[in-house]
Simulated assay, not measured.
Amino acid sequence: MDMRNEATHIAREDGARSAAQAATSAEFLTFRLGAEEYGIDILRVQEIRSYEEPTRIANAPSFIKGVVNLRGVIVPVVDLRIKLGCEKVEYNGFTVVIVLNVRGRVVGAVVDSVSDVLELAGDLIKPAPEMSASVDTSFITGIASVGERMLILMDIEALMSSADMGLIEGAQSLQ
């Protein structure tokens, strides 16, 4: 009888430990922008599509490439390489659009390539370094080292709904 109770107690501890680990880990879609590798919450990703030239919108900022029709939904397309100041923006066979669901809106993000989906434990994620006031790091949630790789983890919802993007109505009141 005591052995059964002890086994049940150990099983409960193991279950609690794995539940705690699950709560502190998250899955990230990783992608490249220039030489850097970024990660975003996989739960924001709706789909990944090959790049197609969007229809340009007059007077839009340079990082908003235009709009595409995605099965009847008009989707604004943001080139993250331009938005985040990559030196070289080149469209090739690896260029893709990550279709995101941000605060109920569908938005496309152009990236150089998609790498993989990684599950990262909370202890692998370090806080983003403090930068000068002229560098906007508000959308960076942390940095993760995975082997030789250094991932910049970003809050894609905060970036896409920032006021300068102008994509999400009433973004200021929601923050």
Rank of each mutant, 00 (worst) to 15 (best):
A16P: 00
G39F: 08
I10F: 02
L118M: 15
I74F: 02
S25G: 09
D123S: 13
Q21S: 12
N101C: 04
A158P: 00
G108W: 05
A20V: 02
I82W: 01
V97M: 12
I10H: 02
R81H: 04
I40T: 12
G15V: 00
A23Y: 06
G34M: 10
D123Y: 14
M160Y: 02
G122T: 11
L153H: 08
I64H: 04
A128M: 15
D116W: 06
G72N: 09
S132H: 03
R17E: 14
V146G: 06
L70N: 07
S145T: 13
N92H: 05
S134W: 07
E87C: 00
E6I: 12
I125D: 08
F63V: 00
M1S: 14
A133R: 13
A109W: 08
E27G: 09
E37D: 03
Y91F: 15
D136R: 07
V117P: 08
A35T: 12
A35K: 11
G66E: 04
V99W: 06
K83G: 02
G166W: 12
Y51S: 05
V45Y: 11
F63E: 05
R32P: 00
V99M: 15
L174T: 09
G104T: 08
S113D: 15
P54K: 06
A19G: 01
A133G: 02
A20K: 15
I140G: 10
Q46L: 03
A109E: 09
F139T: 10
M150S: 15
Q46P: 01
D14N: 12
S62G: 01
L80W: 09
D79N: 13
V77G: 02
Q175T: 06
V106A: 08
V68N: 03
I168K: 06
I57W: 04
L100A: 10
L167H: 07
T55H: 06
P61I: 05
T55P: 00
S113M: 09
R44H: 14
K83H: 11
S25W: 07
P76D: 09
E169C: 01
T8W: 10
E53S: 07
R12V: 10
A171D: 09
K65A: 13
V68E: 10
L29N: 00
L43F: 07
V106M: 15
S161C: 05
G170T: 00
I10R: 15
M1Q: 10
L120H: 05
T30F: 04
G39M: 11
I64D: 01
L153D: 10
M1H: 06
V73S: 15
L151M: 07
C86D: 14
V111L: 07
